[in-house]
């Protein structure tokens, strides 16, 4: 059961056993292991497989093979993570379904991570992406539904951990499907090696994407629902809008319903270069998401928020408490400088 119910923690040895079983094809063990990573019982950041590897080497080094899980090397290798993102309702799940079917038939070992938002009120979630995918019926395709679990849920770290384990278990292609609205989900897209933006045929969808700036981040744009009359114009408008920018992404027109355009899409995905223009924007977003996550996981964070709200400390003091010093100011403030924030602001205005 989940840790929150007060059950005893699973010891690292169990995680190592689960990992070995998962690598050998035990789907239940894989499911369990992914849960441990999601809950942070097994440390997800960094070299999770390295950590498990250390445990395994202590346990039984003959059974296991050395796993290289250095993601930096995975670009040229066949292990790629594709982020497929776009506004709700554009047909991402159907698109992912077709792509995953094709890849599965071509012999790839595939995992699809479907990310859906958690309710900010109850903390619960309805994870309904997999129901739209027929590939869920196929044993060869692994699907896992993931709830965002709120801003402090550490989503990026969790997904990073899941991806590393899945790749270590032999999944050579991973698709992360996310709604791409809001900072949290955009941040997820940047975990992917390649980002594909899915648009619908309505102008409204596109304005959303443009506002989010996602078309700067992505490597390929797919306009879905080509069976609808407005789609072709939408694709044309989109090409026109981005062609003045540097190295614009390709815009493909497909119909997930009929399969039109998929031959070209699949070919494109086989050899999709990373847009270098996107690399910096993505690195920035990824770094910021990581910093935010790190700050929010600091045990002093909640207390500092309370003090800030009560005006007991200033933003500077809060930042310094958790180690962020301004280069213009001394590392530690003298104890007598407890001026209220408003006074400090007034001074700055002069």
């Amino acid at each position: 059961m989940r840790n929150g119910t007060g059950c005893e923690q699973v010891m690292p040895d169990d995680a190592a056993e689960l990992f070995v079983a998962a690598k050998n094809g035990d789907r239940r063990a894989l499911g369990r292991l992914l849960t441990l990573i999601e809950e942070g019982t097994v440390e997800a950041i960094g070299s999770i497989t390295g950590e498990l590897q250390n445990t395994l080497e202590g346990a039984d080094s003959e059974k296991t093979t050395v796993v290289e899980s250095n993601r930096g090397e995975s670009d040229s290798a066949e292990m790629l993570v594709y982020g497929i993102t776009g506004a709700p309702g554009v047909g991402k799940s159907c698109l992912v379904d077709r792509i995953a079917s094709a890849w599965s038939e071509a012999g790839h070992s595939l995992s699809v991570l479907c990310v859906d938002p958690s309710s900010s009120i109850s903390g619960g979630a309805i994870l309904a992406d997999r129901m739209r995918m027929s590939i869920g019926a196929s044993e060869s395709v692994h699907i896992r539904s993931i709830a965002t679990r709120g801003a402090s849920g550490g989503l990026s770290g969790r997904i990073q951990g899941l991806v590393e384990v899945l790749q270590a278990c032999g999944r050579d292609r991973i698709i992360i499907e996310t709604a791409g609205v809001g900072q949290t989900e955009l941040g997820i897209a940047t975990l992917a090696d390649r980002i594909i933006l899915v648009e619908g045929p309505d102008r409204g969808d596109m304005i959303q994407a443009e506002k989010a700036g996602i078309n700067e981040l992505c490597d390929l744009i797919v306009v879905n629902k080509s069976d609808l009359p407005s789609a072709e114009k939408a694709a044309h408008d989109l090409r026109a809008a981005i062609e003045l920018g540097p190295n614009p992404a390709d815009v493909l027109l497909v119909s997930s319903k009929s399969g039109d355009g998929f031959t070209e899409l699949l070919l494109k995905l086989e050899d999709l270069p990373l847009r270098s223009e996107a690399a910096e924007a993505r690195a920035r977003l990824r770094f910021l998401a990581a910093v935010q996550s790190r700050v929010m996981r600091d045990e002093r964070f909640d207390q500092l928020v309370i003090k800030l709200a009560a005006n007991e400390i200033s933003i500077h003091e809060a930042l310094e408490s958790i180690g962020y010093t301004s280069k213009n100011q001394p590392a530690t403030k003298p104890p007598e400088s407890k001026e209220p924030e408003s006074q400090r602001l007034a001074e700055r205005k002069d």
């Binding site: 309710s119 997999r130 709830a147």
Partner: peptide, 16 residues
Amino acid sequence: IARALRDAGHEVIYTG
């Protein structure tokens, strides 16, 4: 049922 469970804080996967 799925919505009620979500409102009670659970994560619900509906298979279709």
